Amino acid sequence: SVQLSETGPYVIQSIIGLGDVDADIQMQAAPYQQGRTYIDSKLIPRFINIEVLIKGTDDEDISTKREHLGKVCNPVSGQLRIQYEYGGRIKETYGAADHVPRYLSGEGRSRTHQIAVIDLTCPNPFWRTLQQTQEPTFEPRFRFPISGPFIFGIQRDRRQMINDGDSPAPIFVEFHGPALNPMIINNTTGEFIKINQELLEGEIMEIDTEAGTVFFVEPDGTRRNVFNWIDDAATFFELVIGENDIEYTADSDIQGAIVNITYSKLYNAI
């Protein structure tokens, strides 16, 4: 990893792309229609351009720092995890380097400094919160000075979840057994995710609506893909902007059952 800051040794000279994302405005036209009919707008990938001043003590030090930057921003190494901190807030995204860092010549370099240019392409244009928001089944209310396999609190089979980000947010769901055909419903949109399977004590079902994956986790931790267990009418829904009325149910008594929901809020600029 490498840290770009205002002090060094890798100093940010300029950065473009923290909020600059174009939208693809989708339209259609009927025969003889004047103009177009608006359908939707979708953000295109995010492009980030960074100019960095590398500070060093001599030729050897500059060369070492250049080599390290090139190793981090290596296009063939896949996507980079990009974190940006400002005003005490941290957001992150993922992007791939368009090229090996471009090192400028002439006034862009000397024995004690080097100017480097980094261009990144982020397929997902949104920044997301570093800390994920968790919505556990049990809302803690009180504690007792005892130990043992006890859980105290209010079981929230229905809860209100507020997404105050700039885009619908994918969710990660964990169904814990015992439960028969567990289902989670977003009453705000009418969408639901249902698993046509019985979960026994100690068994877990993991659903990622961003990746569109479904995994069954056995008590010993073994994971296997069980996408075929998803109900045909189910939707890998996301939390819409604003209030979401989320409900958990099953074809069996859910008293004592657990479902956990985790998500990151998405932002189009920071």
Score class of each variant (00 low, 15 high):
residue 152 F to K: 00
residue 12 I to N: 04
residue 86 Y to Q: 10
residue 100 V to F: 11
residue 38 Y to T: 04
residue 134 Q to F: 14
residue 106 G to S: 11
residue 189 T to Y: 09
residue 183 M to R: 14
residue 245 D to G: 05
residue 130 L to E: 08
residue 30 A to I: 06
residue 193 I to N: 03
residue 134 Q to D: 15
residue 16 I to N: 08
residue 176 H to T: 00
residue 180 L to W: 09
residue 125 P to M: 00
residue 121 T to I: 13
residue 264 S to P: 02
residue 100 V to L: 12
residue 244 N to M: 02
residue 154 I to A: 10
residue 267 Y to N: 07
residue 105 S to V: 14
residue 157 D to G: 03
residue 162 I to W: 06
residue 75 P to F: 01
residue 238 E to A: 07
residue 65 K to V: 03
residue 264 S to V: 04
residue 184 I to W: 00
residue 246 I to C: 03
residue 256 G to H: 09
residue 254 I to C: 12
residue 84 Y to K: 10
residue 235 T to D: 05
residue 121 T to S: 13
residue 211 A to F: 06
residue 156 R to S: 05
residue 172 F to M: 09
residue 221 G to Y: 06
residue 43 L to Q: 10
residue 99 H to L: 13
residue 86 Y to G: 09
residue 67 E to V: 15
residue 197 Q to P: 04
residue 36 R to Q: 09
residue 24 D to W: 13
residue 238 E to G: 04
residue 76 V to N: 03
residue 193 I to E: 02
residue 16 I to R: 09
residue 87 G to V: 07
residue 19 G to Y: 12
residue 11 V to G: 09
residue 9 P to G: 02
residue 264 S to N: 12
residue 16 I to P: 01
residue 173 V to G: 11
residue 46 R to C: 14
residue 136 P to N: 05
residue 86 Y to W: 12
residue 205 M to N: 01
residue 260 N to V: 12
residue 72 V to R: 12
residue 39 I to T: 05
residue 247 E to A: 13
residue 101 P to V: 00
residue 84 Y to E: 00
residue 92 E to N: 04
residue 7 T to R: 05
residue 66 R to A: 05
residue 232 D to A: 14
residue 113 H to V: 06
residue 150 F to T: 10
residue 93 T to F: 01
residue 20 D to N: 14
residue 102 R to S: 14
residue 24 D to K: 14
residue 243 E to N: 00
residue 36 R to A: 05
residue 111 R to D: 14
residue 44 I to V: 11
residue 59 D to R: 11
residue 245 D to K: 05
residue 129 T to P: 03
residue 166 D to K: 06
residue 176 H to P: 02
residue 33 Q to N: 00
residue 40 D to A: 12
residue 233 A to C: 07
residue 64 T to G: 03
residue 249 T to C: 12
residue 145 P to L: 04
residue 141 R to Q: 02
residue 248 Y to L: 02
residue 178 P to G: 05
residue 84 Y to C: 10
residue 244 N to P: 02
residue 71 K to N: 15
residue 20 D to M: 07
residue 54 I to F: 09
residue 135 E to K: 15
residue 188 T to M: 02
residue 13 Q to L: 07
residue 185 I to A: 01
residue 57 T to G: 03
residue 259 V to H: 07
residue 188 T to Q: 01
residue 225 N to Q: 04
residue 125 P to I: 01
residue 240 V to C: 10
residue 48 I to D: 08
residue 61 D to W: 04
residue 103 Y to W: 15
residue 183 M to H: 07
residue 22 D to G: 11
residue 85 E to C: 08
residue 10 Y to F: 13
residue 61 D to N: 15
residue 106 G to N: 13
residue 262 T to D: 13
residue 84 Y to L: 08
residue 96 A to C: 09
residue 202 G to R: 13
residue 250 A to C: 13
residue 3 Q to T: 15
residue 179 A to L: 12
residue 211 A to T: 05
residue 31 P to C: 00
residue 112 T to L: 14
residue 2 V to S: 08
residue 104 L to K: 11
residue 70 G to N: 15
residue 12 I to H: 09
residue 52 V to N: 15
residue 146 I to G: 08
residue 5 S to G: 13
residue 252 S to Y: 10
residue 183 M to E: 05
residue 109 R to I: 12
residue 16 I to S: 09
residue 242 G to L: 00
residue 185 I to L: 10
residue 12 I to C: 11
residue 252 S to K: 08
residue 72 V to I: 15
residue 154 I to N: 10
residue 261 I to P: 14
residue 226 V to T: 00
residue 151 I to G: 02
residue 39 I to P: 07
residue 224 R to N: 02
residue 233 A to W: 10
residue 106 G to F: 11
residue 200 L to S: 11
residue 231 D to H: 15
residue 21 V to R: 12
residue 189 T to L: 09
